[in-house]
């Protein structure tokens, strides 16, 4: 009796294992589980025959039945895991993309080289303790010339040929009027940096524009000397160009500073004129009611276009205003 039940178990195990290993879908596998191990499954049927066994035989047979059950359960689980893995593998294979194909997007906007140059300059001067100041572009003769020690008929007015408006006002020819406006409203110590648009009645060519941008710098305090001007310019140039380039201070003339200097920077083997500067002229101090015996200071100004063109190696100033996407996309 035992022998025949045992043989039934073995043959069940064999046929079940063959069925499990031959099954290749999860639904079929679940059906096999029910068929062999379910409440009304084939194993249960065999176990019902246990009642005919003797008391000694039963435990032995029960142990064998358990082994078969566990073996089948294990086979079912492992087959299930295999099938699941295979399903994932199949999904992965089916979903595999050509990762070299382009993504879809709207590109972000770019900074204009004039704007990024001003941003960079302001960053540097804010770091040196300067505050940003601005002023109107339509100016009076007083702020643009008179208060800056450029009286009527002064030849320096020729240096910056002026656009006048019909009411006698003018388009500022430099950012220097911001100095005067700021000093009128504030007491020293002063450290301002003033970016802005300026206008000159200049024929437009590859390096000249009737509309361009400047940044102006002004520091007024007790005890400021020419050496501080030099140190400030040197620090600025180093930050701006990213390295300590050779710098040359050349004697120059501006009505609103004395002594005055042009600053040249040696860049790619050539001396490039990059900015004008000087100690604030006592007449300018007096125009805003500062005592030049008590306060001294320095001022500097430069063209943003020139810096942008040097830094980015742009060949023609007009490119900056033409808004050609082939240009704009490069920055």
């Amino acid at each position: 009796m035992t022998i025949s039940l045992e043989a039934d178990l073995k043959s069940l195990q064999q046929s079940a294992q063959a069925a499990i290993s031959g099954c290749d879908d999860l639904d079929g596998l679940d059906k096999l589980r029910v068929q062999y191990l379910g409440k009304k499954g084939e194993l249960s049927l065999i176990l019902k025959g246990m009642g005919k066994l003797s008391a000694e035989e039963r435990p032995k047979f029960g142990a064998i039945a358990n082994e078969v059950k566990e073996a089948l359960q294990h086979d079912l689980e492992s087959r299930k895991a295999n099938l699941q893995n295979a399903a994932i593998e199949a999904q992965l294979a089916a979903e595999t993309l050509d990762v070299t194909m382009a993504g879809s997007y709207r590109p972000q906007g770019r900074r204009h080289p004039l704007n990024s140059t001003v941003d960079r300059v302001l960053d540097i001067f804010v770091g040196l303790g300067y505050t940003v100041a601005t002023g109107p572009q339509v100016e009076t003769d007083y702020y643009n010339f008179e208060a800056l020690n450029i009286p009527a008929d002064h030849p320096a007015r020729d240096m910056q040929d002026t656009f006048f408006l019909k009411d006698g006002r003018l388009l500022r020819t430099h950012t220097s009027p911001v100095q005067i406006r700021y000093m009128e409203k504030h007491d020293p110590p002063i450290r301002i940096v003033a970016p802005g648009r300026v206008y000159r009645r200049d024929t437009v060519d590859a390096t000249h524009s009737a509309v361009f941008h400047q940044v102006e710098l002004l520091a007024i305090d007790k005890g400021l000397a020419f050496t501080h001007l030099k140190g400030t310019i040197q620090a600025f140039i180093k930050q701006m160009f990213g390295e300590a380039l050779p710098i040359r201070f050349r004697a120059s003339y501006f009505p609103f500073t004395e002594p005055s200097a042009e600053v040249d920077v040696q860049w790619q083997g050539k001396w490039l004129e990059v900015m004008g500067c000087g100690m604030v002229d006592p007449n300018v101090m007096e125009a805003v009611g500062y005592d030049p015996e008590v306060y001294t200071g320095f001022a500097a100004g430069f063209g943003v276009e020139r810096f942008a063109m040097v830094l980015h190696q742009i060949d023609d100033i007009r490119r900056l205003y033409n808004s050609d996407l082939r240009f704009l996309r490069q920055f």
């Binding site: 302001l122 303790g129 450290r191 050496t227 030099k230 004395e258």
Partner: peptide
């Protein structure tokens, strides 16, 4: 100015102002 010019601008020292002031964007 004449003294500075003829002494040579290149001979002047370079230093940052010793007073520090907090700067900032408006």
């Amino acid at each position: 100015e004449e003294v500075a010019r003829l002494y040579g601008y290149d001979h002047f020292c370079e230093q940052l102002p010793s007073n520090t002031i907090a700067g900032g964007l408006s």
